[in-house]
Simulated assay, not measured.
Amino acid sequence: MWIRQAVLAGLAVTALLMATAVQAQQITRVAAASQLRFVLEAIATQYRERYPQNTIDIQYGSSGRFYAQITHGAPFDVYLSADMDYPAALVEAGFAASEAMPYAIGRIAIWSNTVDAQSLVLADLADERFRRVAIANPRLAPYGARAEEALISAGLWDALQPRLVYGDNVSGTLQLVQSGAAEVGIVALAQVLNPVIAAQGGYALIDVDVHRPLEQGLVVTRRAAQNEVARHFADYLRGVEAATLFQTYGYDLPAVIP
């Protein structure tokens, strides 16, 4: 009898350990570029409703900082960058368990909460009424790099140097304008289409011809090589349902959507 009880107890412990292992695998940690916050929260809400057994934990920040953290062992399973360069670099360096996959194409816009930005063009940023112009740090944030390219294309980069203020990422750039630290900024279109932000001021879309495309990519990290939930969420981000939300929030789509 005691042998049978011991065996049953052992089986129960084994089952508990297996259940714990499965549960742990279902927790997927996502590092996402800051301008994705509004659209990704909508996508994640939709995903959780469809797959409540899968836990998705999302952190937002600059693409460059997340890239550096992942290469130093940060515990992220899926990485959504604001460009394709950082994901491709992770693949090249052996820190990815998937290829670098495009999921959306971003746009940049001039935005202000104190002046009517709807009629502004890049050349207007040289106006003396704009004592401070905010952009994301071009060395850390792809949206900042594209803002720099746009200003160079307009012949304004050198002239605006003394007036530029930098956010760590494009969310920080928006906050610089909101706080009054800058009168105007170049931010993500996805941010200013959010109803809360849209109510604070107008925007002017910047022509795509003045900067490189903001093709955004993702990877499943090496840490998540055996994490099926991470792969499932990555696939969902590139699926039709997510594509609809990306378009709603002002993103263009890659040429191929599965």
Score class of each variant (00 low, 15 high):
Val240Pro: 09
Met18Arg: 11
Phe233Thr: 12
Ala100Thr: 07
Ala204Leu: 05
Gln26Thr: 09
Tyr203His: 14
Asp235Thr: 14
Leu193Ile: 09
Asn194Gly: 03
Gly106Ile: 01
Thr71Leu: 02
Phe233Trp: 08
Val177Met: 06
Phe233Arg: 04
Gln46Ser: 15
Pro75Ile: 04
Leu122Tyr: 05
Gly61Arg: 14
Leu237Gly: 10
Ala136Leu: 08
Ile135Asn: 04
Ala136Gly: 09
Asp168Cys: 00
Leu164Ala: 02
Ala204Pro: 11
Gly185Arg: 07
Gln175Ser: 03
Glu128Trp: 00
Ser62Phe: 11
Gly73Ala: 03
Gln46Lys: 09
Glu215Cys: 01
Tyr79Phe: 15
Ala134Leu: 05
Val39Lys: 02
Trp2Arg: 12
Arg129Glu: 10
Gly94His: 11
Leu80Val: 02
Glu92Leu: 10
Trp157Met: 14
Gln161His: 11
Ala182Glu: 05
Val196Asn: 06
Ala42Gly: 00
Leu245Gln: 06
Ser98Tyr: 08
Val229Cys: 03
Val208Thr: 15
Tyr249Gly: 03
Val133Arg: 05
Gly201Leu: 05
Ser119Val: 12
Leu156Ile: 15
Ala97Lys: 05
Ile186Gln: 04
Gln175Lys: 08
Val133Met: 06
Leu237Ala: 12
Ala242Met: 03
Ile70Gly: 02
Glu128Cys: 00
Asn113Ile: 02
Ala159Ser: 14
Arg212Trp: 05
Glu49Pro: 01
Gln200Thr: 11
Leu193Asp: 00
Ile43Met: 05
Ala32Gln: 06
Pro138Gln: 09
Val91Pro: 04
His232Glu: 06
